[in-house]
Computed example of a mutant assay.
Amino acid sequence: MAKRNTICAGIDTSKDKLDVALDGSSEELQVKNTAEGHQELVEWLKRHKVKRVGIEASGGYEQAAVAELRRQRFVVIVFQPIQVRAYATFHLQRAKNDKMDAALIAACTAAVKKIHPAPDPRLQPFAVHLTMIDQIKEDIAKLKNRLESCPDERIQKFWKEQIALLAKHRRAEFKALVAAIRKHRDLAARLDLIYSVGGSGLPTAVAILIRMPEIGQITREQAAALTGLAPYDDDSGKHVGARRIDGGRQRLRQALYTAALPASFRWNPQLMALYSRLIAAGKGHKRALVACARKLIVIINAVVARGTPWVAEPPRTASVSVT
Rank of each mutant, 00 (worst) to 15 (best):
A259N: 07
L296T: 06
G59D: 08
I300P: 09
W44G: 11
V112A: 06
G307A: 07
L191K: 05
G284Y: 07
F74G: 07
I55P: 13
D234H: 15
L104N: 05
G60F: 08
Q270K: 09
R185W: 01
T323V: 13
E153H: 05
A179H: 07
D16A: 13
L29H: 03
A260I: 04
E62F: 09
V76Q: 08
Q124N: 04
L147Q: 12
A118I: 02
L226E: 12
A103R: 15
R70A: 12
L165P: 00
N268Q: 09
A64L: 04
T317V: 05
R4I: 04
A312Y: 06
D186C: 02
A9S: 10
N268I: 09
H169F: 03
I55V: 15
R294P: 00
L22E: 10
A312M: 08
A107Y: 00
A205N: 13
G228D: 09
A224V: 05
G237W: 13
R185F: 01
P119L: 08
A280K: 15
L271K: 00
P315T: 06
S321I: 07
E153S: 08
A305Q: 14
L261Q: 08
A65F: 00
A127I: 01
P81S: 06
D152S: 07
G60V: 07
L256V: 05
Q217A: 13
Y87C: 02
F126K: 05
G59K: 08
A242H: 12
V311K: 15
K32A: 10
C8K: 03
M1V: 07
I133C: 04
R47I: 00
F265M: 09
V290L: 11
F265R: 15
A225C: 09
R154G: 04
F158H: 13
R211C: 09
L278K: 10
R190D: 06
G241T: 03
A179I: 01
Y232K: 11
R253S: 10
A230N: 03
V42H: 02
P119C: 06
A205H: 12
A110K: 15
L41E: 12
Y257E: 00
K51R: 13
F79P: 12
A127Q: 13
K175T: 11
W267S: 13
M100P: 01
L187G: 05
H184L: 01
K160F: 01
I115S: 01
K49A: 13
D235Q: 12
G24L: 08
K168I: 00
F265K: 14
D234L: 02
P269K: 05
R243K: 14
L252Q: 04
S149H: 08
R154E: 13
I279H: 09
L271T: 00
R253A: 11
R171C: 03
K144D: 05
E153Y: 07
R146G: 00
Q72S: 10
K168D: 12
S149A: 11
M100C: 01
K283L: 07
K137V: 01
N33G: 12
I208G: 02
Q63F: 04
I163H: 08
K137S: 15
L143P: 02
G284K: 09
I11M: 12
Y257F: 15
P121W: 08
G201S: 14
A255L: 06
R70F: 01
